[in-house]
Design a protein around this nucleic acid. Structure first.
Lengths: 206, 206, 206, 206
DNA sequence: CATGAATGAGAATTCATTCAT
DNA sequence: AATGAATGAATTCTCATTCAT
């Protein structure tokens, strides 16, 4: 019985997290209404508070959950071949993560931009694992000569993650016209590695 | 006397707009407190409502004002020399715009991420003139061979503006540690034109 | 105009304080409902918060106000004659204070008994002036030999104030049957000075 | 088996009562949290409601239990010697009762001050036996001349009980500095019998 | 125009109590 | 009996906005 109860509780929690992700996606963090989330999950007004201590903690938990899923997907991203290929693979994984909860990620990015003490550290932590993976690839690339060594790899990794975000934002801002989500991995890698300036000789490994 | 009154009214309005920009910068749109803005401008609590109809409209007006100032500065940006030099000059102008109302731009960028129907068009309009200028430079660069022609220039221009924003965000997110505002123009141009991949021969014009 | 406004505000504040005293008297501190107080004062729900920052602060202000009135009355209490007469006079003043806001004092005494960090210091401060006056009288009495010197005067003063409170409590507990408020000053002095044991010779100065 | 079950139920009930006494002592009646009590007793949240119908009834039961224990201790108090000695003995018994559940008695006294219809009669009932015993001693004292006969003995008895309570309150209010619990019986008797006024000749039986 | 008191809808949060398991 | 998830009324407090002076 305990197990059944525990299971049911897990499900309820999940329902609340999903309703919350959806609601945050639609209303943002400030605009969100805790009661509405609880009701949307099929519970009474105050029930959410049996699972989460506060609106902020709820947001944090939604984030953590998103994180967890993201890590699973990142873990699956193959990592061999050239730096270009490995970055592309990571970018594709990130796009996949995005697809799963696109609305919530929109809010996430927006909250990241608010630099609030309550949310910024949380989000930075969320980005951490991805950026770390990117940095490992770049560090390897520096030693093989595939990546320029005129900038620290941690800064480069941040730039790569940033360029991805940038493309998401353009995607949303253009209502999906450009770029298409499917094009983002290639685009990001190209922008990041090649730049827009004229290379004296074309890259071959593309 | 009517003129004096009108002038005084203009000044009051300006004071309110500045106080609002500062306050929005610190608290965001949702978190802003209308009374506090009015008080910060040196007026009593309700006075703001003699000038603006609502918090939202006030925000929009602050936005419009920021746009207006930005345009003035962009107009002054010199535009000659190589593509690299001209982009650097535009980026420097943008940084200058940012410096003038750094807090407010923080909010601007955050709001851009919310894609709200009330604010997004305004912000897009704000970016417009800058992006147009960048595009002109890039189009010229394509014809001189300084810029690759594997992507439409409007998309490239959006990317350049985006990279700038990205660097601002990293600047804020790192509490000013990296990158320094002064380094941003060079950094943006380098990232945008050269990329991080290994060029077979180093650029000379740097 | 400013003066008129300030005056009106004073009146509103007073109305709220009175409604609050009444409401606290009826419901206690925990049981009190801030909205109800505001409504009872003839204002809208939230209006009270234009005057007081929180329920606790409101309570503190009611207390302070009661304090202020009490001090006025204590100040009027004549202080000459024998220790017995002077104590009687102070006790009578205290009863007078009590009469003015009997309900609120009931709550006050009750809150004093709760020893909460939020309220106890406030209330102790409230009692201070009265106890000080009593102590002065007792100290004088010790030097004239009217008061025994087998206990520090500050402790004796606390006992006297306590006996008064005790009689109030019995008054309330018996629904006013015994003791009558009017009898309390004499009773308190008698209990305090003479005790219930058999004195070998009756006091004459009574 | 029914007996075993009944016994177990008794024990559970007792555990809950003790946890409740402790919790009420720390938080008061209004501030108490039913869930916390149940958990503190080692049960799950709702279990308490298998034993008590409501928070109020629980409080009443704790009170009744305290009463029961107090009676046992009062019964043991020896009663011979002078009035002074017998009163001292009763006071010592009361202090002993207090010591056993000091926290709860704090709440008890506070609740007594609230004069609520739900709790006041209970508390009066609790005091009853003690006051009766005191009254018997005093009545005997009146006939031996040890106690003045200028006041009905029931009122005197209430005063004695009240002075004890008063000393407890000062004990708590001073954080135990004055008076010490151990000093209270003597102090109470002295205050009650002798008063603070100057006796023409010192008591000998002290 | 400036003022600032008043408004009242609305939000987060608490918790005594119920009841299906 | 024990459990603990669910309930939802109630409460404190906020603040954008209005409007009489």
């Amino acid at each position: 019985m305990a197990r059944i109860t525990a299971l049911a509780k897990q499900e309820s929690r999940q329902r609340l997290l999903e309703a919350a992700a959806q609601h945050f996606a639609n209303h943002g963090l400030d605009g969100a209404n805790v009661d509405a989330i609880s009701l949307a999950a099929g519970f009474a007004k105050g029930t959410l508070y049996n699972y989460f201590q506060s609106k902020e903690q709820l947001f944090a938990e939604v984030l953590t959950e998103a994180c967890r899923r993201a890590l699973e997907i990142y873990a699956e991203a193959e990592s061999h071949g050239s730096v270009r290929e490995r970055l592309r693979s990571l970018a594709a994984a990130d796009v996949e993560v995005l697809r799963q909860q696109e609305g919530f990620h929109k809010v996430l990015i927006r909250e990241a931009m608010s630099f609030r003490n309550e949310t910024y550290p949380l989000i930075a932590e969320h980005l951490g694992p991805f950026v770390n993976k990117v940095e490992q690839v770049l560090a390897a690339g520096v030693s093989t000569g595939e990546v320029r060594n005129n900038q620290p790899t941690d800064q480069l990794a941040l730039m790569f993650a940033g360029i991805l975000t940038l493309l998401y934002v353009h995607h949303w801002g253009s209502q999906g016209i450009w770029p298409d989500l499917a094009d983002i991995p290639d685009l990001a890698v190209s922008v990041f590695l090649d730049g827009a300036g004229h290379a004296t000789q074309p890259e071959s490994g593309r």
